[in-house]
């Protein structure tokens, strides 16, 4: 093929399809197909083989027919064993509480940045984003040293005289909240900031002109207008937090695991791939709605950038 011919192809309708097809093919092969496999395996039985699950379709013993084994046992197992339900509930609770704390800390910060002078604004934004560029794992690990019984937090509290005995902070729910809030705070602040920054400040002047006090103006004007930012920030924290694995592993309780850890244990420790797959499917189905809401927001944001 000559170069000119290649150029012609890339310029035409055919080339358009090739260009669309490249990312499409990658995402289908490495994102959609894997989920279908997980879905499939969640219906099969454990086998002591490699891979350790039974095929969904296999030849009958006489070799004449195909037999489909469609096993709902894994899902039944998840419902029957209260461990899983408790784990799901705990994960959602941890994620929800962490999200709310993030919002409570992040909103005032985002608001302060959005209303700061333009020169300081960029500096502050950089300060918010900077930790994100350093290792997530190491930032979580920093809290192990801080929260230990003889860690920095306890030492400071003892020295100030607020407590007489070291508090048990590490390996508690508290530590997990701290870890999640700490790691995900930038994800709350950034969408909130990008929303708040776009607000037309004359709206507040108009509200003041019409007799609203600053607090009323905030509650009636700024807050309602920032709801898209709040929703995006919350979803950006909540969804990954539900499946969080590293933070509870390093900081959390050992008697109550989160769902990400259970999935991983089923897979690696118990080698029960079908149950691990079923856990993944249930988790995914549970998060489907929030994920779809997030996508709608994301697409609208990008469209809005078009102006």
């Amino acid at each position: 093929m000559t170069l000119a011919r290649l150029k012609e192809i890339l310029a035409g309708e055919y080339g358009r399809r090739v260009v669309i097809g490249v990312p499409y093919a990658w995402l289908l092969a490495f994102f959609v197909v894997p989920f279908l496999i997980v879905f499939k395996i969640s219906f099969s039985e454990v086998r002591f083989s490699m891979p350790p699950y039974a095929p969904l379709f296999e030849l009958t013993e006489d070799g004449a027919h195909w037999r489909a084994i469609f096993n709902l046992g894994n899902y039944h197992y998840l419902i029957a064993d209260s461990l899983y339900i408790a784990t799901f509930a705990y994960s959602i609770k941890v994620a929800a509480v962490s999200t709310l704390i993030c919002l409570a800390i992040g909103y005032p910060m985002a608001y302060a940045i959005a209303r700061a002078r333009e020169s300081t604004r960029n500096l502050l934004l950089m300060l918010i984003v900077l930790p994100f560029w350093t290792s997530f794992l190491l930032r979580v690990y920093a809290w192990v040293g801080l929260l230990q019984n003889d860690g920095v937090v306890n030492n400071v509290l003892l020295a100030v005289g607020l407590i007489d005995q070291p508090l048990t902070l590490l390996y508690t729910d508290f530590a997990v909240y701290v870890g999640i809030v700490y790691s995900y705070l930038p994800f709350m602040i950034l969408p909130l900031y990008s929303n708040l920054e776009k607000h037309d400040l004359t709206l507040l002047e108009a509200a003041a002109d019409l007799g609203a006090r600053p607090m009323t103006a905030f509650l009636r004007i700024t807050l309602p207008l920032s709801i898209p930012g709040i929703v995006a920030g919350c979803l950006l924290v909540f969804i990954p937090a539900v499946g969080e694995y590293v933070i509870p592993s390093l900081l959390g309780r050992s008697d109550q695991l989160m769902i990400g850890r259970v999935l991983s244990d089923e897979f690696f420790a118990n080698r029960d791939w079908p149950v691990a797959s079923a856990v993944a499917i249930v988790l995914l189905v549970g998060l489907l709605l929030p994920i779809l809401v997030f996508q709608r927001y994301q697409n609208r944001e990008i469209e809005a950038a078009r102006r």
Partner: peptide, 22 residues
């Protein structure tokens, strides 16, 4: 395509990891 490109942004890592391995 739009959906497929935004989904991994929030997908819990354990799910992505498991599905890729499988």
């Amino acid at each position: 395509l739009a959906g497929l490109t935004t989904a991994p942004l929030v997908m819990p890592e354990v799910i992505t990891g498991l599905s890729m391995l499988l």
